[in-house]
Design a protein around this nucleic acid. Sequence first.
DNA 1: TTCGTCATGTAATGGGTTACATGATTAC
DNA 2: GTAATCATGTAACCCATTACATGACGAA
Lengths: 175, 175
Amino acid sequence: MLELAILGILHRAPMHGYELRKQLGCLLCGHRPAFSFGSLYPTLRRLQRAGLIAEDGGEPSASAGRARRVYGLSAAGREHFAGLLAEVTPQHWEDDCFGVRLAFFSRTPPEARLRILAGRRRCVAERQERIRSTLDRSCEHVDHYTRQLQRLGLDGAEREVRWLDELIEAEHRQR
Amino acid sequence: MLELAILGILHRAPMHGYELRKQLGCLLCGHRPAFSFGSLYPTLRRLQRAGLIAEDGGEPSASAGRARRVYGLSAAGREHFAGLLAEVTPQHWEDDCFGVRLAFFSRTPPEARLRILAGRRRCVAERQERIRSTLDRSCEHVDHYTRQLQRLGLDGAEREVRWLDELIEAEHRQR
DNA sequence: TTCGTCATGTAATGGGTTACATGATTAC
DNA sequence: GTAATCATGTAACCCATTACATGACGAA
C-alpha cells in the first residue's frame, strides 16, 4: 500500500522523502495519519534496491553528510506501477486501500476502475446491511451511545453508497 | 484496545472466545473488520494470567480435548476496567479507539465523557479544516477522483462534527 | 459419513510505530 | 549563535494477521 502510494506520487514528479510524506498525507487526507519516517525511508531504500526508483541528479550523498535524496521512477518502476494499477483484488476495495487506489484512478484502466467501484459498493452496502440489522435487532435494550455510533456509521455507509453510485454512473457515461 | 473491548464486553456477561468475537464485531460495527482469533485467544490468556478475567464453571478443559472456555471478569478486572474508563488521553479520540471508548460510555465518568467528546470534536474539526484547505488550494489542477474522495471525506467530517455537537449538548443537558 | 459450523489454539510473519540519533538550512 | 524546521536514517518493539492444526457437534 505504501509502495503503491510512493510509486504513484513519484510518477507525477521526482521528490525527496520528506516532501513525499507531505504529499502522502495530502493523498490520504485524514483517512489515516500519514506514514511515519520510520516506515517511509526503509521502503524507499527497498524500492531503490529493487530498481523501481532511482536517485536523480548524480550522487548528492557524496557531497555532505546528509542531503536530500531526490527519487524518481525508473522505467521498470513505471512498468511495475502500471501492472499494479491493472490488478483488481478484493483487498483493493477495503477501507485501507481503496482511497489510495482511487487517487490513481486516472491512470487505471477503465475496466479495472469499474470493477473496483463495484467491489467497493458491495463492500459498503454489506456493512450498511450489517449495521441496519444490528440496529433493528437491538431496539431498546442496547446502550444509547452504541446506538448513536451505529446511527453515524449507517449514515456514513448510506452516503458512501450514493457517492459510489454517482461515480459509477459517471464511468458509464464516459464510455 | 482489544483489551479494553474484551473487558467491556465481559463486564456485561461472561462469555467464551468465539461468542466474544461476534460481540466484538457488532461493537466495532464495520469500523474495522473484527479481530482475528489469532489475536483474541492469546489476549484472553494474557488477561487470565494477569488475573483480570477467570474461567467460569470449574475446569471444562479436563473433560474433553477442547471445550468452550467461558470467561468472566474478576474483581481485579472490574477495578482495572473502571480505571481504564476514568482515563482520558489523546489516543482515546483517534479513529482507532474512539468507537470502543464510546461503546462503554454509560460506565464512563461524566467528566471523562465530556473531555473525550471535546477531544474528538477538535480532532475531526482539524481534519475537516485540512481537507477544506487542500480542496481550496487545488481548484482545477488536481485529479478529479482525488477531489471526489476529498469531497466525501469533508462531508463525513462535517457530519461527524454535527453528530458530536448533538452528543455534547445532550451531555450538558443531562447534568 | 461427511460437511459445515462451532470452538480453541500456536508459530511465523508483517507492516507499521516509537524513540532515538544525526546533520543541514533558514530565520531571528 | 541559536532555535526551529527541514531532512535522513536505525533499532527495538507492538499489535495484529495469516496460515496452520486440532477437535466437538449437529444436520444432511
